[in-house]
Design a protein around this nucleic acid. Sequence first.
DNA 1: CCTAGTTGTAATTGACTGATAACAAGCTCT
DNA 2: AGAGCTTGTTATCAGTCAATTACAACTAGG
Lengths: 182, 182
Amino acid sequence: MGARVRLTAAERGEEVLAAAVQAFGAAGYAGTKTDEIARIAGVSQPYVIRLFGTKQQLFLAALQSVCDRIEQTFREAAAEEPTLASLGGRYETFLAERELLLVLLHGFSASGEPAIGDVVRERFGGIYRLVRDLTGASPTEAREFLGTGMLLTVMTAMQVLGPSAVPVPWADEVISTLGDPA
Amino acid sequence: MGARVRLTAAERGEEVLAAAVQAFGAAGYAGTKTDEIARIAGVSQPYVIRLFGTKQQLFLAALQSVCDRIEQTFREAAAEEPTLASLGGRYETFLAERELLLVLLHGFSASGEPAIGDVVRERFGGIYRLVRDLTGASPTEAREFLGTGMLLTVMTAMQVLGPSAVPVPWADEVISTLGDPA
DNA sequence: CCTAGTTGTAATTGACTGATAACAAGCTCT
DNA sequence: AGAGCTTGTTATCAGTCAATTACAACTAGG
């Protein structure tokens, strides 16, 4: 515990939120302990709870945060070129920041909790609409796009994508198709 | 309790496994209590543990079971007509038996546990290969097919599909595209 | 029928974990 | 300087949950 710096609650909250995204991304909602989040953030476990009220509220905050970032990423891509191919190119960003898609996936998995399900439905619907609005894609095109995105997401979760991936031949085969026409 | 019947360990194990598929499908690996599985199966919690050793081994058994059933469903479809469209028609089966896809999804989410990740990679790779072998689909076609499948899976998880679905407009729009060409 | 194996439960435990309470240390403003 | 608010911790609790143990009930084979 070296030179602990005092931050405002808002600043510390940001740090804890970042730690929460990491931890929830790795182990899911039920599988993550607030203690682990506290360890990553470098604060005590009770302080994590005080900053966000409950573990569930912290998860919801993490979920909102990653959805914001996903949408922002898509907006940036569309600003360069408003096509599905352009947005699709950003999946490299998501592979580099695995937590984004993983927290979203764990949100799907935890949709049994009503409060989480509500947010998940709202935000995923928003992403679907955003993709269509930004690119002018048809429903069918948007479905194909998000389907591929979900496939890459679950492949990220099962650790066959990215730098520390477990090598499996079929994953390479799938990746090699990504540029291909739908 | 009532007229408790004595079964062989193998028979009771089947019942417990079915209960486990239901429970894990609803709440995920970490989120499910062995006690809940026992309640559904109508046996005591310690007996659930004794039949399968550990909660993790029970989850793995449930995962293997649903993967077997998914593969069997695809094989049946291919026997009728060996095309992707034919296999795709079986997603209605999966929407009726939500637990199948949900347990698989929760397997993805729990891939952080090494023992679970190993099985998930193995089985999902097997399904990918099976789809290609049964239909002669190209890697790109198989990717599109599984991508759509994963999208439907996460939509099932977030409860926007199926009979007891929360109605959201975008879900209907996605569903309406399912017959469309890729 | 009776003994040996099998099926099943009740009781319990020990570790874990989210949350609360009480308190300590710092900052700010007058 | 010191009162009052903010930041943060330590200590602790109450509930949960997978797993173990010991035991009870049943069944089949000789």
